[in-house]
Design a protein around this nucleic acid. Structure first.
Lengths: 224, 224
DNA sequence: ACCTGAACACCGTTCAAGT
DNA sequence: ACCTGAACACCGTTCAAGT
C-alpha cells in the first residue's frame, strides 16, 4: 500500500512534469522572459523552450506573437489592481498613478513597448477606476475623458523616459560635453544640466500636480 | 563638341544613377519607407533596395538598424523647427506642441516607436525651445524640467494613443458590446462611450490647458 | 482537443573581398 | 573611402501529421 502510493507519486511527477499549457502560463512565462532581458529578446522559440513545449504548440493557444505581448502588457496592469476608493479624489488618483508607475519601473519593457493600450481586462479595470474617480469628483464627461488620457500619458511617458534615458556614466559625461560644445544652439539645455541626469520622482510628482491643479481650477471655474 | 557633351551626359547618368550614399539619403529613404506601411516593415534589405545599393553597403554608413530608426525619429523632429518666439509663453508652447502633434500624426510610427527620445539635433532643438520659453516665462529650473517632460509625454502619448486606437467600425461596435456585457465591471466606461471613439483634438487641447493652468497657478503661488 | 517536427520565407549582421 | 555577395545564426508562422 505504501509501496503503491509512492510509485503513484513517482509516476505522476514523471508523466506530467508540467501543468497543461494555458494562456495564463504563456503570459506568465512571457513576463518572466521580458523581465530578464529588457532588450525585448522575447522569442516564440525561447518562450516555448521555457515552457517545455514545442514552438508550434504556442500557436494553438495564441494567434500571434503580438498577442503574447498584449497579454504580457495587460498582465502588468492586472498586477496592481486599483486601491479601494477613498473620499479624496486627488488622493485616489495619486495612489493609482503612483502604484502604476512602480509597476512600470519594475517591468520597464511594458512602458517602452508603446503598442495599442491593449484593451484587456487589466487596462480596462485601471481606466474604469480612474474615470469613476473623476466622475465621482464631479467633472464633466469631457473633462473626465481628457484628464484620464493626460494622466495615462504622464505615467507611461514618465516611466518610459526614465527607463530609456538611463545612461552610463561615460555617456552622461560625453553627452554633457556635447551640449556644452554646442551651447550656442542649446544654451538652456547646456546651462541647466538636467536633461541627462534627472530626478524622475520629482518630475513625476510635479507633473501630476500641474494636471490635478489645472483640473481643479477648471472645475472651480464651472466650465462646460 | 555637341556630340561629346551629349555622350558625357549619357555616360554620367548611367554611371552615377544615384547621388552618393549618405546618412541623409538613408534617413530620407527610411522615413519614406516607414510612412508607406505603418507596421514598421522597415528592413535593411528593403531600405538598401530603395536606395539602389547592396544591403551590406548600409553598414558602412550606419552601425545598426537601431541607428536608422533613431535617425528617422529625429528627422521628424527636425521637420518642424521651433517657431520664432513671441511674447506670450503660453502661445509659444501651444504652437510648438500643436505643430509637433501635426508632425506625429503625419508620421504615426514616430509616435508609436517609443524608443529613447533619441537625443539627436532635432530633439535637442525642440527641447531647447521648450525649456527656453518656460525659463523666459520665469519658472524655476525644477518646474521647467518637470513641465517640459509632462508636455513631451502629452504630445507623444496623445498622438500615439490616437494612432493605435484607430479601430475599424466592426471593432468599435464589438468593443462597445463587450463593455456593455461587462458593465458590472466597467460601469463608467460602458456608460461614457468615449473610450473607443473619441475626439482627440479636444483631448489634446484640454490636456494641454490643464498642464498650463497648473503651471501658471504654481508660478502665481510663488513656489520653490 | 492538444501537441509535434520539418519547412518556408524571411530577418540583422559579419566577413573577406573587390575598386 | 566606399561598395559588394555569400554566408551565419537566427526569426515568426504554416502545414501535414500525430495522439
Amino acid at each position: 500500500m505504501a509501496e503503491r502510493s509512492r510509485s503513484l507519486w513517482l509516476r505522476t511527477t514523471s508523466a506530467r512534469p508540467d501543468p497543461p499549457l494555458t494562456v495564463e502560463r504563456i503570459t506568465a512565462a512571457a513576463v518572466e522572459l521580458l523581465d530578464e532581458d529588457d532588450v525585448g529578446q522575447l522569442t516564440m522559440r525561447r518562450l516555448a523552450d521555457r515552457l517545455g513545449v514545442g514552438t508550434t504548440t504556442l500557436y494553438w493557444h495564441v494567434d500571434t506573437k503580438e498577442d503574447v505581448i498584449d497579454l504580457a502588457v495587460d498582465a502588468v496592469f492586472a498586477a496592481t489592481p486599483p486601491p479601494p476608493p477613498g473620499d479624496d479624489w486627488r488622493a485616489d488618483v495619486t495612489t493609482l498613478l503612483t502604484e502604476r508607475r512602480a509597476a512600470l519601473l519594475r517591468h520597464p519593457w511594458s512602458a517602452v513597448m508603446r503598442r495599442r493600450p491593449a484593451v484587456g481586462p487589466g487596462f480596462l479595470s485601471w481606466m474604469e477606476f480612474l474615470q469613476a474617480t473623476l466622475t465621482r469628483a464631479g467633472f464633466t464627461s469631457r473633462d473626465v475623458t481628457a484628464a484620464s488620457w493626460v494622466l495615462y500619458s504622464h505615467v507611461q511617458g514618465s516611466a518610459a523616459s526614465q527607463a530609456t534615458l538611463r545612461w552610463s556614466v561615460a555617456e552622461r559625461r560625453e553627452g554633457q560635453l556635447m551640449l556644452e560644445r554646442h551651447s550656442a544652439s542649446y544654451p538652456t539645455l547646456a546651462a541647466q544640466r538636467h536633461l541627462l541626469d534627472d530626478d524622475w520622482d520629482t518630475n513625476f510628482a510635479l507633473g501630476l500636480a500641474y494636471v490635478l491643479d489645472g483640473l481643479t481650477a477648471r472645475a472651480a471655474a464651472g466650465a462646460t
